[in-house]
């Protein structure tokens, strides 16, 4: 346990503790305010619509916040020294080697995906997906006040993406990943010689289709199997469209917006499924899944 507290209080990990606490607090705050607005006929914000003068009522808040933040920054900077380790040495990789904390969620995904997905495609999808939000969310309600009832899908999806896929993975990557990027529970000692024996297999091998032919070329059956898995997963979005296309919501959303939403949503779910495929089998003594789809050019 001592070592866990030590990791927790490492100066560079303070922001993550802050992140965790503030995210919990603000999620709770949101929940309280949203519940209150959902019960009332008119959101609380709408009753505070009378105008006040910026000088002094807003400026004084800014002024006080500035002083408070400056005080916090000065105390923080006096109390904790920024880390400065050994001089750079290309030949000696520290164990574990970690990216800056805000990228640890992505680094965690590197365990499950090839670098081109985890390092390039997923970040791009995150950025593009975030930018697309205002243009695909056609729900006019919930503009400018806290609410949950009026935009459940939006809040749940974003909350899952931000709280679980981003914050929780950062916390996991910082506090629970030790040497060799092995998983350690809080309280376990980070043993640099710990060896996790993991023999990964491809998903098709669960169904008796070996990925590689004896001469090390790709088995076409495995290729087709993977293509069907991935293609079938994304075609769920198409099926849902065909089933519900005549509802009011879908008519209003339109095919283009729907395609964007379903692609991004399924991609997010797909990431979770791949993580589960990697982690869950070990609980039953089976081999974790390495790839779902192996092709000559890329592996998913």
């Amino acid at each position: 346990m001592g070592q866990f507290l030590e990791i927790l209080s490492k100066p560079d990990n303070i922001p993550i503790v802050l992140l965790l606490l503030s995210v919990i607090y603000f999620t709770w705050l949101y929940w309280v305010k949203a519940k209150r607005n959902d019960m009332a006929t008119v959101p609380v914000e709408a009753t505070q619509d009378d105008k006040v003068q910026v000088w002094p009522y807003l400026v004084r808040i800014e002024f006080l916040m500035t002083i408070a933040i400056m005080a916090v920054m000065v105390v923080w900077s006096i109390a904790l020294d920024a880390p400065l380790e050994e001089p750079a040495n290309r030949a000696l990789t520290p164990n574990p080697s970690k990216a800056p904390w805000y990228f640890l969620g992505l680094q965690e995904l590197l365990v499950y995906f090839d670098p081109w997905i985890a390092g390039v495609v997923l970040p791009t999808l995150i950025i593009v997906g975030l930018m697309a939000i205002p243009y695909v969310d056609i729900n006019e309600k919930g503009n400018g006040y806290y609410t949950y009832k009026e935009r459940k899908f939006a809040v749940l999806t974003f909350g899952f993406g931000f709280l679980i896929m981003w914050v929780a993975l950062i916390v996991l990557g910082t506090f629970l990943r030790g040497p060799g990027w092995n998983f350690f529970w809080p309280g376990e000692v980070w043993d640099p010689h710990y060896v996790a024996v993991l023999t990964n297999v491809d998903l098709s091998e669960y169904f008796g289709i070996t990925t590689r032919m004896p001469d090390n070329s790709l088995n076409p059956l495995a290729f087709i199997f993977g293509a069907v898995c991935v293609g079938g997963f994304y075609s769920l979005g198409v099926l849902y469209w065909i089933k519900n296309r005549n509802t009011d919501l879908m008519q209003k959303l339109g095919l283009v917006r729907y395609s964007v939403v379903s692609f991004l949503f399924l991609s997010m779910v797909g990431v979770v499924i791949k993580v589960i495929l990697r982690l869950l089998p070990t609980a039953f003594g089976l081999n974790p899944v390495k790839y779902v789809w192996v092709t000559p050019w890329f592996n998913v």
Partner: peptide, 11 residues
Amino acid sequence: SDNKFKCPCHG
């Protein structure tokens, strides 16, 4: 001792 190469970054 383990007769293998082990990468410290992601194992």
